[in-house]
């Protein structure tokens, strides 16, 4: 079992949606991501695991350039979506974030009605017609497995929903702008087991149409829902591969120690 040099990253079979080549991220002088090269397959769930501060959330934020919002952040290398570099000067960042939606750790509904929360994005992108908005709200809430629970209370405040419902509303809000990729940064860490189960079920349904990348501290969640897993440690991508292989027979001693709970 290796434990020093990082293992070569094998390209998964099938269509590749996202890839990075020699990606490094610096916060001022701190080298937060070190020369990451990886291929993320389309319409699959890829889980990123690793101890706190290992760089997995920073890595996730490279795909929709959320790191641009941090002044001290500097990126080198390539981040590609469908083969096009998202850090290219000509990239329309607003359009990129429409294609690559993000769900955060804590549900963050706007202080408005359930309906308006979901309609917010489409309105921002110019949809004004009532029937079109109704349609997109219903479709998105159905897609997020929330419609049946809220269809009679769409005008109620989103803040009245439970934590699990609010998180599914956050997902509905992302789906409303019809993205291609869903980035999920610990989407269940504030949820109870039942709500977590619903989100995991939802992720597996969404996988049919979306490429999902999830950061999770919960290894069992990673093993339950994902097909590919990457293990980060101190800014390095130590090992990346088939989820079954990572959890049953990791190749790197550091991955083995982490998944067995020997550190972290």
């Amino acid at each position: 079992m290796s434990s020093d040099a990082n293992l070569p990253i094998k390209k998964p079979e099938g269509e590749i949606k996202l890839e990075t080549h020699d990606l490094s991220l610096y916060y001022d002088g701190f080298h937060a991501l070190k020369n990451i090269s990886v291929y993320i397959p389309a319409r699959r769930i890829t889980a990123l695991i690793g101890p706190s501060g290992c760089g997995k959330s920073s890595f996730l934020r490279c795909f929709n350039r959320m790191n641009d919002l941090i002044q001290s952040a500097r990126v080198t290398g390539e981040v590609l979506i469908d083969g096009a570099n998202v850090y290219d000067r000509t990239t329309d960042v607003a359009a990129l974030r429409k294609r690559v939606g993000m769900v955060f750790q804590t549900p963050n509904p706007f202080p408005m009605s359930i309906y308006d929360n979901v309609a917010y994005g489409p309105r921002l992108h110019g949809i004004r017609e009532r029937s079109a908005l109704d349609e997109v709200v219903e479709k998105s809430l159905r897609g997020a497995a929330l419609w049946d629970e809220v269809k009679d209370t769409l005008r109620k405040s989103a803040l009245d929903l439970s934590g699990g419902q609010q998180q599914r509303l956050s997902i509905a809000r992302v789906l409303a702008v019809e993205p291609e990729v869903l980035l999920m940064d610990e989407p269940c860490s504030a949820l109870d087991p039942t709500a977590t189960f619903k989100i995991e079920e939802l992720m597996i349904e969404l996988m049919e149409n979306y490429t999902i990348v999830i950061v999770t501290h919960n290894m069992y969640q990673a093993s339950r829902v994902s097909q590919y897993t990457g293990f980060f440690l101190l800014g390095d991508l130590i090992e990346y591969g088939d989820t079954v292989q990572i959890f049953e027979n990791p190749k790197d001693q550091r991955t083995d120690d982490y998944v067995r709970g020997r550190f972290g």
Partner: peptide, 9 residues
Amino acid sequence: QQPMSRDLR
């Protein structure tokens, strides 16, 4: 314990 890797094996 929900074992993984070598422990699971």
